[in-house]
Structure formats: C-alpha cells, structure tokens
Amino acid sequence: MLELRLVQGSLLKKVLEAIKDLVNEANFDCSSTGFSLQAMDSSHVALVALMLRSEGFEHYRCDRTISIGMNLTNMAKMLKCAGNDDIITIKADDGSDTVTFMFESPSQDKISDFEMKLMEIDSEHLGIPDTEYQSSIKMPSQEFLRICKDLSSIGDTVMISVTKDGVKFTTSGDIGTANIVCRQNTSVDEPENATEIKMQEPVSLTFALRYLNSFTKATPLANIVTLSMSADLPIVVEYKIGDMGYVRYYLAPKIEE
C-alpha cells in the first residue's frame, strides 16, 4: 500500500513539467526514504534524478519498497487537472496495475480522483559516484534559462569555461559567435540573485544546448540552479525543491574528435 499526501501539490505538477520532455516513461521508486526516480533520455546522453524525501509529505505511507512505472506524458496530463493550490495524494494498492491521483481544493469543496494505468518498464539504473567537482556555479535559474535560450538561437553547442574570473558560455554557428561571461556577484540584496563561483581547477566542457534547454523546464521549481563540472565528466545541473529534495540532470560532454 502506497499513500503519499503532498500539501503543496503544485510542486508535483512542476516536477512533471520539468522531466516529461526528456523522458517519456519511467519507474518511480518508493521507499521509506522518499519518492524518487532515475531515468535516461532515449539516446542515453542525459539522465534525470528526482528525489522527494518522505519528510516533505504531510502523510507518507509506503509499506514496502516498490517501483511504479508510469507514462510521464499521461501523468502530466492528469496532474494538469489539479489546481495550483490543490493538495495531491498519490495512492496505489499492492499488486494493482493502476495508480490514483486525488486532488483536494484548499477549502475541501472540490475533490477529484484520476486513475491511471501503470506500465511495466525495463529501466537501466546507473550508479552515479559521489564526486567532488572541480568547479561549481550557483546562479539565478532565470539567468541560466536566458543564457541557454539566447545561445541556442546562434549555435547548437555551448562551451562552458570556468576560470577564476568567472564562467564563460560560448557558442558559434553559421551566423557568428557569442560569448556570455558571468562574474561572481554575491553583493546583492537577495541571495537568490547572487552568482557564486567555486573553483578548485579551471574546467572547460562542451554540451549540446538542446539538452540544457530541456533542463531549464525545471526553472519554476527553484530560484537558484547549481552547475557542477569536472574535466571529462558529465555536468550536473541541480534545482533544489525547497528542503524536500531535488531534480538533478546529468549530461555527457561532447568530445573533440
């Protein structure tokens, strides 16, 4: 028996919008720790890891560790029917081939339930080592969104270079080239407007903008995004979900031939 009640239902709606374009179907793993997911895109170049810790739910019952396979497009369709202020409850009985999403309006005057068919999904789990990254950048998530969107109108890939002077985003295409440099700036009114660069070693890696743009679908979840990079390793793009968990995206770098 699985029963998870999330008072801030809009979080789940935003999570689905953040991952459904990258991954079409995925297994959600439910354990006493929390509700999580790890899935790769169809080309196995990008991976999304979601964690919603059990403490963040108002009610969290998961009698045994289970994995429930869902089509994310269909799940997103159902969650779109929930109001932004609604409380969302996810329910699944043992051995059932369906999951139920229940939406309650804040004043309890409207209660809806949507039942969705589950799927059997063969998924490959990757072991992601805990790594100390050579560079990490914390910046406003809106700023990162803007940079990815702007650069993708010029080129297909972006080189992200971190030095002590700042982080530089470079692209080039048929019409020309573009460089955007962001410097560390922590003297701002609000911490969410700060750009913070931590660098042990300078790093320069190239990535496909198409994927980075897809990751920015998570922008409504967090004001700050963290980019972590080490030479010859996938970048990690992390959006924290309050103090409840995170959505992390991993993207393999492009290699010079």
Binding site: V45, L126, I128, P234, P253
Partner: peptide, 14 residues
C-alpha cells in the same frame, strides 16, 4: 568537430 558520448561510459551500470 565534436561527437556525443553516452552516459554509460561515465557511470557504472546496474
């Protein structure tokens, strides 16, 4: 010219 590797080469399967 750049080429795109998959994640499998970086992270352990299973």
């Amino acid at each position: 010219e750049t080429s795109q590797n998959g994640l499998g080469g970086f992270f352990k399967r299973g």
